[in-house]
């Protein structure tokens, strides 16, 4: 696996997320690695892209995924 892929993976695992939320490393170090290594990207994706941030429309650019709102073209008739 390339370094780039490693970086991408580690940014969405539970341990990294808990640290980014303010959990001390001493806490995550006590947790089994198979738990801290859990990929929580699906949950974070849902929390961040379902309109929870007020007024943000299409905050993410690029290809739409199942967890992004797919905005449709509008034609006035």
């Amino acid at each position: 696996m390339s370094d780039e892929n490693n970086d991408k993976k580690s940014s969405s695992d539970l341990g990294s997320w808990l640290n980014s939320m303010g959990a001390p490393e001493s806490v995550t170090e006590l947790m089994p690695s198979d738990i801290t290594g859990l990929d929580i990207a699906p949950i974070l994706s849902m929390l961040g892209r379902v309109g929870i941030k007020s007024g943000v429309r299409g905050a993410q650019s690029g290809d739409a995924t199942a967890d992004e709102i797919r905005w449709l073209p509008i034609v006035r008739v």
Partner: peptide
């Protein structure tokens, strides 16, 4: 001027950020 989109099994209607 609504924006209209789909999210999984939900239709989303957005008017100025209110959905």
């Amino acid at each position: 001027e609504p924006a209209i989109g789909l999210f999984r099994n939900q239709l989303v209607i957005d008017v100025g950020g209110v959905r």
